[in-house]
């Protein structure tokens, strides 16, 4: 099987090691490279008009040099928090159902459906939202394309991952604790409420934070259902434009300061999302689930 020259040619090993090491350096340097490029591209407009203008300018009129990001930032945060708040209890419900109530075959089927939903591309959710959700909301209260449509679409999109996270967390609850509890005569619900939930609290919170991050970065679906009017929403039925939608809409034709300002909003988004990842890491306890 091994001919003579497969045995210990030290020179080969040396090249191999360095090839592998340089490949990993490329892989590892990517996130730094991304940060560098985004910072570099946004630096020109920050130097020209200063960082504060992004929060104090009159409005977002890139042609006139006015770059107020606050309405879009508010829209992004409202949509992401709203969606995460709705998706978290539903996800926990699915986790509880699949682990403690459903018979095995039904739980398998449930998980399979969740898996499927998690794999549906955001543009397809956006299309569904555009065809069904927006007209439906519009019939309740025009115009339909609004903050609330965005929140609902985002909820549907992050629910599968929230459910998978909760499911994985509940599955790892200590079996011996569950057994002692039922030996003590605890009913099913009091086991869940008094033992499973307290044990899972921190990890669930970490999952919740991660989902906010995902919702913040979501682009296509929210772009297709939110109406894309730059304004601070007065109600849930007002159309809004999120940071991500703004980048996707204007990047193709933006030049000069305008382009640079879009990179500033990208930088802002990147900082928010990575910050949330770090916060989630801080809360997450010794449990690994992929």
């Amino acid at each position: 099987m091994f001919n003579s020259n497969t045995l210990s040619p030290q020179r080969n090993d040396f090249f191999l090691l360095w090839t592998l090491r340089s490949l990993s350096l490329i892989g590892g340097a990517l996130s730094l490279l991304i940060l560098l490029f985004i910072v570099f591209e946004s630096s020109s407009v920050i130097q020209e008009i200063g960082g504060l203008s992004f929060f104090t300018d009159a409005s977002w009129y890139p042609k006139e040099g006015l770059f107020n990001l606050v309405p879009m930032l508010a829209a992004s945060l409202l949509a992401a928090f709203g969606a995460a708040l709705l998706a978290a209890p539903l996800g926990i419900l699915v986790g509880v159902f699949c682990n403690f109530y459903a018979p095995q075959s039904l739980a398998w089927f449930y998980r399979r459906c969740i898996d499927l939903l998690a794999g549906i591309p955001s543009v397809v959710y956006g299309f569904w939202g555009l065809v069904f959700l927006v007209p439906w909301i519009g019939s309740l209260r025009p115009p339909g394309a609004s903050l609330i449509s965005g929140i609902i679409i985002l909820t549907i999109m992050i629910l599968p991952t929230m459910a998978m996270t909760a499911d994985a967390i509940f599955r790892t609850t200590s079996k011996s604790q569950l057994k002692s509890a039922s030996a003590l005569g605890f009913s099913k619900w009091s086991i869940i409420y008094k033992i499973v939930f307290p044990a899972a609290r921190k990890n669930l919170f970490a999952g919740f934070i991660l989902q906010i991050g995902r919702a913040l970065g979501e682009t296509m679906a929210i772009l297709m259902v939110c109406g894309n009017v730059v304004q601070l929403p007065k109600s849930f039925f007002d159309p809004v434009r999120t940071l991500t939608a703004n980048m996707a809409l204007e990047m193709a034709y933006a030049t000069g300061q305008h382009r640079s300002a879009l990179f500033v909003s990208g930088l802002l988004l990147l900082i928010l999302v990575v910050g949330l990842v770090f916060i989630a890491d801080f809360f997450e306890q010794d449990l690994r689930y992929d």
Binding site: G217, T219, M247, M251, L269
Partner: peptide, 8 residues
């Protein structure tokens, strides 16, 4: 990292 940032 959000996909739109990869796009930028």
């Amino acid at each position: 990292v959000p996909s739109i940032v990869f796009g930028l």
